[in-house]
Structures are given as structure tokens and as C-alpha cells.
Amino acid sequence: MGLETLIPFIAIIAFATYVQTITGFALGMIVMGAVTAFSLVPIAFTSVVISAVTLINGLIAIKGNFHALDIKRVMITCAGIFPALLAGLILLDYLSESFNNLLQLLLGITIFTGGMLIMLRPEPLKEPSPNAVFAVSGATAGFLAGMFSMAGPPLVYLFYRQPFELKTIRLCLVSIFLVCSTARIIMVGFQGGLTLDMLTFSLLCIPMVMFFTWVGKRYPPPLSTTNMRRFAFSLLIIIGISLMVGAL
């Protein structure tokens, strides 16, 4: 991989890591969308790198904050993720063979929908959702994680509706993404889908991920949570539309 690809990819990773550390979501959608829009590397390659950097981001972000986690909801959500994750990986392998335009179109629709869901910002529920809702949301997220390493849209919508503290919501999301990324890397490895280039590139991204996760925790932007969400969903909608137009 040449510098003309490596430098912009790492810059996208750095920006997305900062956004995810602040908001609890968007790393996968921003990286996958921007990298695909600029045709830097294939979707399958990007998915593995996203999984690796999400893992590192999650480990650093939740360090020292376990007390704020809702372990029960995290575990229920993760229980729904694993079987759907494998199904998404199998479909990605199939589409990557001969249907690149269709794959890009599906990616664009997913990112656009994710941006719209984040934009809706429904009123928080008075009581937490039933356990079954978390499991179903986890299954949907697992399928998207298998396809694009983007578990965010259904989980963000669900957790931001819960009557939890904002810190708990963010840490639950980051924790689930961490578990999901670990499972995806293991499954891809068993499928024989990990290459030396993927591993090397992931290692090169780790210092940048660690630094911008620390920056996000230590120096959040002078914006309200509402304005950060507006920025995130606006960016995702633009990326999603550009991908759909490019695929068509």
C-alpha cells in the first residue's frame, strides 16, 4: 500500500476515532463510507481494519469507567450479535466476488439510514426497553457488523432512547462495539480472510487510534451533545448519498 493511500486512510481513522470517543458511535460508518467513497481500498479490507481499531478504541475508552456500564444490557445485546455476525460475513464474501456496485449501494443505504436514525433523536423512554428488544437490535447490528463492520445504526437508536445517563449510553455502545469487533476478527481469521497487509495496516493505525482516543477523552470539542449529534448525522447522510450516487 503506497503513501497516497496510507496517509488519507490514517487521517480518516484519526478523525473517526475522535468522533466515536466523544459520541460513542460513528467510527465504522465514517471510515467505511469515506474510504469507499474515495476508492482507497476494498470494502472487505476496510472492514478488518475498522474491527481492529474499534477494538483498541474501546479498550482505551472504557478503561477506568466500568462502574458506569450497564453490564446486563450489554450482555443481552451481544447475545443477539454473534449468529447474525456470521451471516453478514458470509454474505459479504459472496457479494465481494462479483457484485461490487451492489455492495457499495447497500453500504450507502446503510450509512444514509444510520444518519437518519441518529437525526430523529426520539424522546427517551420512561422505562428501559424489554430484554427482547436489546437482543433483536443486537442481531440487526451483528448482521451489519458482519457485512460492513458497522454495528452502530440500530444500537445508537435504541440506546439513545433509554432513560440512562449519557455516559452510560456511550460506554455501553463502545463496549458492544469492542465485543463485536473482537468476534468479527476471530471469525474472519477462521475463514482465512486475514492477510498480512490487513494486519500490518491495522498495526500502523493503532498509535493514531490510541492518541485520538486520549485526545477525545481529554479534550472534547466546545459543542453541546445535540450539536455533536447534528454534525455526525449530517456527515453520515452526505457520505451515504455520495456512495449511492457512485454505485448507480
Rank of each mutant, 00 (worst) to 15 (best):
residue 134 F to C: 08
residue 39 S to K: 04
residue 146 G to N: 05
residue 210 M to Q: 12
residue 76 I to E: 09
residue 72 K to Y: 12
residue 104 Q to C: 14
residue 68 A to D: 07
residue 32 M to H: 11
residue 239 I to M: 11
residue 154 P to E: 12
residue 63 K to P: 10
residue 198 M to P: 03
residue 179 V to S: 03
residue 223 L to C: 15
residue 132 A to Q: 15
residue 223 L to I: 15
residue 209 V to Q: 06
residue 235 L to V: 13
residue 109 I to L: 08
residue 135 A to L: 10
residue 222 P to A: 14
residue 9 F to W: 07
residue 6 L to Q: 00
residue 61 A to F: 12
residue 83 P to S: 03
residue 143 F to I: 03
residue 181 S to R: 02
residue 101 N to H: 09
residue 231 F to N: 15
residue 111 I to N: 01
residue 200 T to I: 01
residue 24 G to K: 15
residue 21 T to M: 13
residue 173 L to V: 03
residue 160 Y to N: 12
residue 112 F to S: 10
residue 198 M to A: 00
residue 88 G to K: 02
residue 88 G to D: 00
residue 51 S to C: 05
residue 120 L to K: 13
residue 201 F to E: 01
residue 32 M to S: 12
residue 215 V to Y: 14
residue 76 I to R: 10
residue 184 R to P: 00
residue 221 P to M: 08
residue 3 L to M: 07
residue 77 T to L: 03
residue 78 C to D: 09
residue 133 V to I: 14
residue 168 T to K: 13
residue 95 L to M: 01
residue 123 E to P: 06
residue 90 I to P: 08
residue 216 G to W: 11
residue 229 R to T: 15
residue 13 I to D: 09
residue 181 S to H: 02
residue 195 T to C: 00
residue 4 E to L: 00
residue 161 R to M: 06
residue 172 C to D: 06
residue 198 M to Q: 00
residue 133 V to S: 14
residue 185 I to V: 01
residue 123 E to N: 08
residue 107 L to T: 11
residue 84 A to D: 02
residue 114 G to K: 03
residue 40 L to I: 07
residue 95 L to R: 02
residue 48 V to R: 06
residue 144 L to K: 13
residue 100 N to T: 09
residue 82 F to E: 09
residue 195 T to D: 01
residue 124 P to H: 07
residue 217 K to A: 15
residue 46 T to K: 01
residue 213 T to Y: 15
residue 87 A to E: 01
residue 151 A to G: 13
residue 81 I to G: 12
residue 45 F to R: 01
residue 4 E to C: 00
residue 60 I to C: 08
residue 191 Q to L: 09
residue 103 L to Y: 09
residue 65 N to E: 08
residue 178 L to A: 00
residue 49 V to K: 04
residue 3 L to T: 07
residue 155 L to Q: 14
residue 155 L to G: 10
residue 140 T to I: 13
residue 125 L to R: 12
residue 153 P to G: 06
residue 55 L to A: 09
residue 194 L to M: 04
residue 116 M to K: 09
residue 137 S to I: 09
residue 55 L to V: 05
residue 242 S to E: 05
residue 176 I to F: 06
residue 181 S to D: 00
residue 115 G to H: 05
residue 106 L to I: 09
residue 96 S to D: 07
residue 46 T to R: 02
residue 241 I to G: 13
residue 107 L to C: 10
residue 93 D to C: 07
residue 186 I to K: 04
residue 171 L to K: 13
residue 76 I to L: 08
residue 67 H to R: 08
residue 91 L to D: 07
residue 144 L to Q: 07
residue 175 S to K: 02
residue 9 F to Q: 00
residue 127 E to W: 13
residue 15 F to H: 14
residue 109 I to R: 08
residue 58 G to A: 05
residue 209 V to A: 10
residue 245 V to Q: 10
residue 118 I to N: 09
residue 217 K to V: 11
residue 225 T to G: 15
residue 165 E to R: 15
residue 114 G to I: 04
residue 183 A to H: 02
residue 236 L to A: 15
residue 230 R to A: 14
residue 136 V to A: 15
residue 97 E to D: 07
residue 108 G to I: 01
residue 233 F to L: 15
residue 167 K to G: 11
residue 176 I to M: 05
residue 106 L to A: 12
residue 103 L to I: 13
residue 73 R to W: 05
residue 167 K to A: 11
